[in-house]
């Protein structure tokens, strides 16, 4: 059950190059959000569409989101000041199903934040949680202390080798799974499309259940307008259909996604 609320901004900080953290106060949304769900935020009168942003963390009635400034909407959002009010719709979508007992989180770039909430909720449930986090550059690295506190271990890679292992987070995933096939019984992943497609492939090769959180340009955000579709295999069959990323997702089983149709 989503809410539309005018929410007070508690703080906005730039936490890395082009990446902002915004905390707002809303007990209705904070009280009902699950890991992997998102909020849809109105970014000023000049823009017609809200901006969908995954929830990163909750603290009482406070909701934390992290976003990358990409255009006029996220730029507007990054300029909010403490005490201002933003119009938020949420929580929306279907989040992660924390089914396993040993979770491996695989995050890339701006896909890292929603995994923090999954890490916290899973570790509160007594599950073992570890994380592999990939970034383009050391100046884009976010949330390491938070993941460290929620996980047994965290391994980091950067594409240019400026921090952690030199390479992609999918390289870390392959070496971990090849070293120990029992390192996890469920993979949760969020990141760029190419990375997710690769993670899905690796998970399949290792017969590992895997959930991925997809991104797509959205309209209404609640499942009515059908613009944010992704290709999904029909249950049990050869056929395909389009699912709504906003309402049927954003989290899908990696095996149901048709990767060249998303």
């Amino acid at each position: 059950m989503p809410f539309q609320r005018n929410c007070r901004v508690i703080e906005v900080n730039q936490i890395a190059n082009g990446l902002f953290s915004l905390v707002f106060d809303c007990s209705d949304i904070a009280g009902s959000t699950k890991a992997g769900q998102f909020v849809h935020i109105s970014c000023g009168d000049g823009l017609l569409l809200r901006r969908p942003i995954s929830v990163c963390d909750l603290d009482g009635s406070l909701v934390r989101i992290i976003f990358q400034v990409k255009g006029s909407g996220t730029s507007w959002l990054s300029e909010r000041k403490q005490g201002e009010v933003i119009d938020v719709l949420g929580p929306l979508g279907k989040g992660f199903a924390l089914d396993g007992s040993r979770l491996l989180l695989v995050g890339g770039g701006i896909g890292v934040p929603p995994l923090l909430m999954a890490a916290r909720q899973a570790s509160e449930q007594g599950k073992k949680v570890n994380a592999l986090l990939g970034f383009a550059d050391a100046d884009k690295v976010i949330l390491l202390p938070e993941f460290a506190s929620a996980c047994d271990w965290v391994e980091v890679s950067t594409e240019n080798g400026s921090l952690g292992k030199h390479g992609y987070v999918t390289d870390l995933l392959i070496s971990r799974l090849e070293a120990n096939q029992n390192i996890c019984d469920l993979i949760l992943s969020c990141g760029p499309q190419a990375m997710l497609s690769r993670v899905a492939h690796i998970a399949k090769e290792h017969h590992m259940p895997c959930q991925v959180s997809l991104e797509q340009r959205m309209g209404c955000g609640i499942g009515a307008c059908l613009v944010c579709s992704c290709g999904i295999k029909s249950p049990g069959g050869e056929g395909k259909s389009f699912a709504r990323v906003c309402a049927d997702g954003p989290v899908f089983s990696s095996r149901e996604v048709i990767w060249d149709e998303t």
Binding site: G46, L47, L48, L49, Q216, R217, M218, G219, C225, L226, V227, C228, S229, C230, G231, K240, S241, F242, E261, T262
Partner: peptide, 15 residues
Amino acid sequence: EGNPPPRIAETPMGI
């Protein structure tokens, strides 16, 4: 099924 995505683009005061 409809058309393949992306299916939406924002424009000045329009979509």
